[in-house]
Amino acid sequence: MNTCRIAAWLVALAMSAFCAEARAARDYISIVGSSTVYPFSTTVAEQFGKTSKFKTPKIESTGSGGGLKLFCSRVGADTPDIANSSRRIKQSEFDQCRNNGVTEIIEVKIGYDGIVLANAKNGQRLQLSRRDIFLALARDVPDPDREGQTMANPYTTWQQVNPDLPPQKIEVLGPPPTSGTRDALVELAMEGGCEEIPWIRALKEKDENRFKGICHTIREDGVFIEAGENDNLIVQKLDVNPQALGVFGFSFLDQNSDKVQGSLVDGKEPSFEAIAAGEYPVSRPLYFYVKKAHVGTIPGIEEFLAEFTSERAWGEEGYLSDKGLIPMPEDERASVGMAVRNLTPLVLP
């Protein structure tokens, strides 16, 4: 029985030590959010951890929405300091933040990412337009015989979509609905193509729900294959199936340029230069948001921001561009950098 008593004491001791430690403030930065920003955020974090006296920040990949939800839940050491996002914060999220006492948020735009539609090198390179992408991937497409009416998407080859394209089967591997890449595909490529059809564009003002229903719904008849969040897997699948197109971020094209080729969209090649110049139509800005209340409480936030917005990180020749981030133009970098140094909070109506 003696051993039992000793064991009981040990457990009690461990529990109290543990609770005491749990209450102590955090000494590392906690970051959550988008899986698209994750590779860039982690690179800066690692660099920051190695070259500064602070600990390396911890970064969770939760998706943009999930990250902002955690970020906005409260002010306090048990909540994240920074939320990465592959889109701008929504008004509803901003309001939620404010209601939960997170009143001052600093917005940092870090650069651009391109969404590419790529196929294997041994296949034929496609020259798509956003209209082609919409017609090939939407669940309902406009009925050519009846103005203002839609029909279930009947197209099975690219040639049916656009006579200039090859008679190749439409087969697209892409991310699931939880992914920010999918949001960008829908909002930039499909909606862009959708608006080229006059009567649908007219709907945008009249009946926004119907407009979104037509433009934002991807077909579910097996032509668009949800291949999971793992973009490497998509690249591997493309390698063995030259018919198929894959949808992923520019950094995967950059790393695998010997295996896959990006399709031209509206005549523009998904290259570093074209995305940086804003010519490639399917590209989006990437952001992160900082809780101003934590600056000063959690050590190292200001220094981390300085590292992220330094020329050696996000500049034209910076280490983030090696990882596939497309830098912003110089004057934009200067203005964002200035706002970050002054810790200017974001103002939304």
Binding site: F18, S41, E60
Partner: peptide, 17 residues
């Protein structure tokens, strides 16, 4: 519970990330 994260420092205890 947040254990799917990028963590560079090797953890040294039960409470470190």
């Amino acid at each position: 519970i947040g254990m799917v994260a990028f963590i560079v420092d090797v953890p040294k205890g039960f409470l470190e990330p």
